[in-house]
Design a protein around this nucleic acid. Sequence first.
RNA 1: GGGGGAAUGUCCCGAGCGGCAAAGGGGGCGGACUGUAAAUCCGCUGGCUAUGCCUUCGUAGGUUCGAGUCCUACUUCCCCCA
Length: 420
Amino acid sequence: MNAPRSEFLKVLTERGFIHQTSDFEGVDAAALENRLTTYVGYDCTGPSLHVGHLLSIMMLHWLQKTGAGKPITLMGGGTTRVGDPSGKDESRKLLTVEQIEDNKNSIKTVFSRFISFGDGKTDATMVDNAEWLTKLNYIEFLRDVGRHFSVNRMLSFDSVKLRLDREHELSFLEFNYMILQAYDFVELNKRYGCVLQMGGSDQWGNIVNGIDLGRRLGTPQLYAVTCPLLTTASGAKMGKTASGAVWLNADMLSPYDYWQFWRNTEDADVGRFLKLFTLLPMDEIAKLGSLQGAEINEAKKVLATEATALLHGREAAELAAETAQKTFEQGELAESLPTIEVPSNILKEGLGVLTAFGPDYAKLVPSSSEARRQVKSGGLKVNDQTVSDERASLGMSDLTSEGVIKLSFGKKKHVLLRAV
RNA sequence: GGGGGAAUGUCCCGAGCGGCAAAGGGGGCGGACUGUAAAUCCGCUGGCUAUGCCUUCGUAGGUUCGAGUCCUACUUCCCCCA
């Protein structure tokens, strides 16, 4: 792999986005000529994307910023009805068409934070593969596209092999997923002149299938670029918190919690994440990354604020930083912590601690039983006092002078109950 | 087509003479130590209106006071013989 000549690949390479490329020089050349129309596909399996998707979104961001080409965000309105078997042990429950539509609309909102849409040459476009996939005619499709796929070869792909090796069911429906994704690539080439597909490294096989299909169907040369699968330095899959995935939609995960997620990055990951998830110049990142010992906390704060600012805006990021500073460094009560409203008449009657921490109110623990266990191990606090009696109840007298009750789970997770 | 084996706690792997909320790991969570880090050590790891009740061992029935455990059928997978 020679040094890239295009700004686009230079940025991607030095920031650590690239896992594999099908033809580095080819992509480089297309980027130099600013004709690197590129797509990334997003399934509509959930109501929000999560940090795992962020890498590919950032790649589209750089694509646009360096002027290398036009970004296309492909919503998998059609493919989600089939379900990608990659990396999963079991097939997902089939989502209804309505659910998929809802998810799609909810997911869509995030992209405009990172790339700008419009009609200009490098403005991004959003398309939905339901547009063409739902209109396919089975027999025609088999004859035109299906004949180019070898089942022998399909069986050798990891996404399929994993299921077979583990003796798990793989339905014919899912087996078709890679064919549809390959077809998407070709279709996007025809419609938009798209020549590059990017995605996570688990998508490599699917993307290469698209390139092969394109060659057989006579498209210009297509390319693949994949980014590494995100793991933390200690090997854990990245993107999970106590309360689930690290969502990108603000209504699924507050900017404060999002900031916290980045703030808790492992030491060894700080430099890498700054390169991937912020737009800070490389020399500044190098400076931050070289901090040692406790000083590295400063770099983590920068990472948290910059990453949050990208997604939720500068103002929300700084508020989150400030909230964290009050809560963690000054030990004060920050009123900007995530807040749950509780009708005052419920407080007057007394609200059981277990219930208050549970899924009906603070949502800090998933069940009363879990709350009970946490009381035993000293993990729950009310107004910074460890809860020792699981039968205690919260009342109006627990309200602080600010009119709230601070509930804490562990050392890091805090929620305010506010009487209304 | 015939014969033999397997499916376990809805994160994963995996023990389980008929008395089982079910051994042991991994992962996760909490506590201690720290720097809101890692490593290490300790505890927890089905739900609930909770000294009790309810739901869990591929699916559906059956035997039994009692079934993850025995029987029958079905589903899926693996191995051997054709």
